[in-house]
Amino acid sequence: MDLIVCIKRVPQTAEAEVKIDASGKDIVRDRLTFDMNEADSYALEAAILLKEKFGGTITAISLGTADAEDTLRIALAKGADNAIRIKAEEFAQLDGFKTAALLKEVIKDITFDAIFTGCMATDDSYYQVGPVLAELLGVGHATLVSKVEVADGKAQVNRELEGGLIEHLEMSLPAVFAVQTGINEPRYASLIAIRRAAGKEIRVVGREEISIELKSNSTLEGLFLPPVGKRAEILSGSTDEISTKAATIIKEKGLI
């Protein structure tokens, strides 16, 4: 099977303090660490598992600036055969639609049986790229995918719904699968594989190779901190004092 995986390098913000930069439209990035978007690492693993079973190739594609090549090399080390970077620095206002449209311009010249993407990226939280890419390519898609098994040219696909319910679909290939986190155990790249991947060529696609005029759906006007809600009463003092206060509250509620 020939497979394509779309991956994005994103700032790791879940456990970090996030601040707005001077432009008001972006966050301060110099103190953040960057890594492959979490759902994309599950998408990559899903593709690798299929390649291990059926053979074929994996092409990893990332729309990003030069440092996205580090993330692509991780994908190469884990099991991708080819890597392509689309130069994000040459395009403005990259919303989910425009990202998908750019990916389509590169993917339309590649034969594939399935495309895997993460269901969303933690930085812009769009949930758009997979289904829009599928629509632009004229193939089927499923979002929030929690399982893909291929047999006899058909894919048995599970989607994760609310409350733990699963929707089971049968789909034909080619198709786009936007995968949810937690669906497999993404492997680690071995040191030898990382060293080998360092020497591999990454194809770089710039604006001059994109033949169509691309439009954005939306323009980000500015960032602001989410309004503070009811806000918890913060218990202050030493760890011992805080613990005493918390235990007292729990006791007063009649819970111990």
Binding site: D95, G96, Y126, Y127, Q128, P131, T143, L144, E160, L161
Partner: peptide, 24 residues
């Protein structure tokens, strides 16, 4: 709705129709 239901068809629907859209 930005739910498992809505997210499976709204972005592709808007793309098919050629309308600007956004999610969540």
């Amino acid at each position: 709705g930005n739910t498992a239901f809505g997210i499976d068809f709204a972005p592709s629907l808007a793309t098919q129709l050629g309308f600007p859209f956004t999610t969540d």
